[in-house]
């Protein structure tokens, strides 16, 4: 499906910033506690975005480009942090 010469897979993890209430995580935490996993003290739910990028860029340069995508669209800096993982 992806035929680009320089095709690279980049994963972006988007998380709610600390201090931002995550009711979904809280609900999952309560459910885990109810299932007997009382050692679970906090759950935060984020999302993983996988990009296939056909680019000669690597390392820092690729990170910078994907970072730009995150700043513009993929994450909302008011409420979310992101982390870029290659491969």
């Amino acid at each position: 499906m992806f035929h680009g010469v320089f095709m690279k897979k980049v994963r972006v993890i988007v998380r709610l910033r600390s201090g931002v209430l995550d009711p979904q995580g809280k609900t999952a935490e309560h459910a885990l506690n109810a299932l007997g996993y009382e050692d679970v003290k906090d759950v935060r739910i984020g999302k993983v975005i996988e990009l296939q990028v056909d680019t000669a860029l690597e390392g820092e340069a690729l990170n910078a480009r994907v970072g730009e995508m995150c700043d513009k669209l993929l994450a909302n800096p008011v409420i979310e942090d992101y982390e870029i993982l290659e491969g």
Binding site: V20, L21, V78
Partner: peptide, 17 residues
Amino acid sequence: LCEMGLLPGALLTNKNL
């Protein structure tokens, strides 16, 4: 309007989901 920055802040999932 919040997403485009014309207004500050953001709207999150309702507290009770």
